[in-house]
């Protein structure tokens, strides 16, 4: 394992010491490592275990439980397309399929350039703007195929740094 950048080590240390019990920082530490590695690779899991004083199994128990921790490689932008009932009502399916078709990936797949991963997501809490998706912590409202094209083009242009939870 190559050493972590000093800022990240400091950040991890801060996360663990900011709470009463290191276990509370488990998700935060995994977010930070996910941000660093791009996803939670095995090395990231071992790092997290070291920092938190938990076993890799305990962390795996959490990482595989939750939706927003990725144990397999994902693209730079993870597109969470809401597929819950309200968005479904507004033909979310076609938005989802349109995205997969446009990007040329199956559901859950990552584009070859490593930019995008499309995932179906549980209701993201933006139902009044259905159909909706969440990329990079940002909601995209009342989607249409044209709107999706515009979003993809904007992200491809790379003006935005990925901001995942960390």
């Amino acid at each position: 394992m190559s050493p972590l950048p000093p800022e990240l080590s400091t950040e991890l240390h801060r996360l663990v010491t900011a709470v009463d019990n290191p276990r509370e920082a488990a998700v935060d530490v995994m977010y930070a490592l996910q941000h660093h590695y791009g996803y939670l690779c095995d090395e990231a899991m071992h790092r997290a275990a070291e920092v938190l004083g938990m076993t890799t199994l305990e962390l795996e128990s959490l990482a595989t439980f939750y939706d927003y921790l990725y144990r397999r490689p994902v693209g730079r932008y993870v597109i969470h397309v809401c597929d819950s009932v309200v968005c479904w009502m507004f033909h979310q399916d076609s938005i989802f399929d349109y995205l997969c078709r446009t990007l040329g990936v199956p559901p859950g797949g990552t584009t070859e350039d490593g930019l995008f991963t499309v995932l179906p997501a549980a209701c993201v809490g933006n139902c009044h703007n259905a159909p909706t998706m969440l990329i990079n912590g940002r909601f995209y409202d009342r989607l249409t195929p044209e709107a999706v094209d515009a979003v993809i083009a904007e992200l491809r242009a790379g003006t935005e740094e990925p901001v995942r939870c960390k």
Partner: peptide, 10 residues
């Protein structure tokens, strides 16, 4: 489609 399974280790 199954679940949003971005979390499955190999």
């Amino acid at each position: 489609r199954g679940k949003a399974c971005g979390t499955r280790p190999p």
